[in-house]
């Protein structure tokens, strides 16, 4: 994204808002699939993690990639389940709900912070425009 001098902070905060929006998308996918035993590939749902990178020098932030969390699946004893193995265990997604809730809190706080910066910068510009009156 191109950044020009006086509108730079606006573009940067908007990139922050968009990044946190993506993060929310990833979190909602993880929470929605917290008990998805079959993700279509014979495995339970694998938790996803958004990786961000900075967009050049002072260019804001952008989504680099969404990577699967390769930690072990949760094993739950449920012999009655048709998907249970011979020991009676069912593999469950490696989604950890308390962790997702924490990430959700962080994402919404960072979103608020970006919005606050945007608002403050807007007020700064207004101050400059007042000089034109």
């Amino acid at each position: 994204m191109e950044v020009n001098n006086s509108f730079g902070p606006i573009d940067i905060t908007i990139s922050g808002l968009r990044a946190q929006g993506k993060q929310m998308e990833v979190i909602s996918s993880n929470v929605a699939n917290a008990r998805t035993v079959d993700a279509g590939n014979g495995e339970p749902y694998r938790r996803l993690e958004a990786v961000f990178k900075s967009d050049g020098e002072m260019g804001g932030v952008e989504l680099d990639k969404i990577v699967p969390d390769m930690s072990d699946f949760l094993e739950v004893l449920d012999p009655g389940n048709p998907l249970a193995d011979e020991r009676g265990y069912v593999a469950m997604p490696n989604v950890n709900l308390p962790l997702e809730m924490m990430n959700l809190n962080i994402a919404s706080r960072v979103y608020q912070a970006n919005a606050a910066v945007l608002k403050r910068y807007q007020q700064m510009i207004e101050t400059t425009l007042e000089l034109l009156r």
Binding site: I10, I14, R18, G21, I125, E126, L129, R133
Partner: peptide
């Protein structure tokens, strides 16, 4: 993207204000 549109709108308002004040 809603955030992008909000950003564009803020920039547009700032430009508009500057021009109207210059005109006055």
């Amino acid at each position: 993207n809603f955030e992008v549109e909000v950003g564009q709108m803020i920039k547009n308002v700032i430009r508009h204000k500057a021009l109207v004040r210059l005109l006055s």
